[in-house]
Design a protein around this nucleic acid. Structure first.
Lengths: 223, 223
DNA sequence: CTGGATCCATGATGATACTG
DNA sequence: CAGTATCATCATGGATCCAG
């Protein structure tokens, strides 16, 4: 196993941090683990063009630095990768990158660009949080292609995660990724099942297109 | 000029952001520009092991994405690189990395590891800000090897920047980098000139070793 | 001196295929 | 499911050189 040992050799906190998480793909692995533990193939799915060799290398490095832990159940082949508390502490970094990315680096999807529901929902949560005059407590349960996700506003911030809700959801949305995409982009609500009390559903419908709104507003002004 | 055009092709705000700033060295260039505009050679000094080719390439990319602007005064060869407002918006990303780096990725300097006063002062400001029960308004003026820096607490946060203070400093410190290092590490105050009102100097002396304290506390517990 | 450019070496990553 | 293996390519490192 060739291990990436490139350093910066600066006596600097930023450089030290980037030696641990600054390699190509590394922060994207952390992004995907922040929403919940994943298996090797789950990560491959979400990371798209990464090669298994590179993913293996990144996971080993992250284990070495104590950012990721691998849960290997004896007798089973399945390995679940999860963030340690040290890794969880990278959430502010990812959030800051997401804020900047949404504000300055957004582009509408290219033709045939792979799109994962989890990343789409992250962008939605980030957009709502960014504009948020939406200081409400609300929990949305998404069931997309058989996987469960939650977007949640706690009255101060909006966040997302993978998995089923711990408490009853205000709104439950069932759809396939492409139908969800059309809903979020404000194109149509075909093939999207939305369940919940009428007022809650109404607020959901209002907020779910925040991402499209934010992006449209920027497209007119930025590069 | 070979331009790095690697993308991730995810429909994801984090991936979009990292396509702009995720390349090796890029965030370190931004780190150094966040404390003030710099010339090519100023950046070379601070970045240490970067090659001029790579720095040129990074600066061009950052200009392309609108993160950096190059001020070329007609008739003069000097080029000053500075962050645009888009680039300034990356401050939360650098701050988050610094926070994590100080908390989890710190190491004492290696033998002969290059050390730049600007990075050392960043770490000091970050450390004071992190532990800060120090909610005071205070301005320290550092004169290190002929260059000026400011560390400032505004009552809520502590930050640093290059340049001279706009208002009168509470404490003025004059030293060479290695003497400053020894002061910060709590080893000695030899060859460090500290001027200011007695109470202010006392507080300075108390706070300046925060970095050493924070680090020592972690060394005993972490990797 | 500043602000690079050029050349070559090497190592990290990408592409594709295969395996316990 | 969780990787390995092999080969190709491209980004980066290291050194040197140069023009205004």
């Amino acid at each position: 196993m060739t291990r990436n040992v490139r350093t910066y050799d600066h006596f600097c906190v930023i450089a030290r941090a980037l030696e641990d998480v600054g390699d190509r793909w590394t922060l994207l692995v952390i992004r995907d683990l922040l929403s919940g533990a994943k298996r090797f193939t789950d990560l491959m799915d979400r990371l798209g063009a990464i090669t298994p060799k590179t993913l293996t290398q990144r996971l080993r490095e992250l284990e070495d630095t104590g950012i990721v832990a691998a849960d290997r159940t004896p007798g089973r082949r399945e390995v679940w990768y999860r963030l340690t508390p040290v890794g969880e502490d990278l959430r502010p970094v990812i959030d800051a990158l997401g804020w900047w990315g949404l504000k300055h680096a957004w582009r509408w999807p290219q033709e045939n660009e792979p799109m994962h529901a989890e990343h789409l929902l992250r962008a939605v949560a980030q957009a709502i949080d960014m504009v948020a005059d939406a200081h409400v407590t609300e929990l949305w349960h998404f069931r997309i292609d058989g996987a469960d996700y939650v977007i949640e506003g706690d009255g101060k911030h909006w966040s997302h995660r993978a998995g089923t809700p711990q408490v009853a959801a205000d709104v439950t949305i069932t759809a396939r990724t492409d139908a969800l995409k059309r809903l979020i982009f404000g194109e149509s609500d075909l093939d999207v099942e939305i369940e919940g009390a009428s007022a809650k559903v109404q607020r959901f419908r209002k907020l779910i297109t925040t991402l499209a709104t934010v992006v449209s507003a920027q497209e007119t002004s930025s590069r």
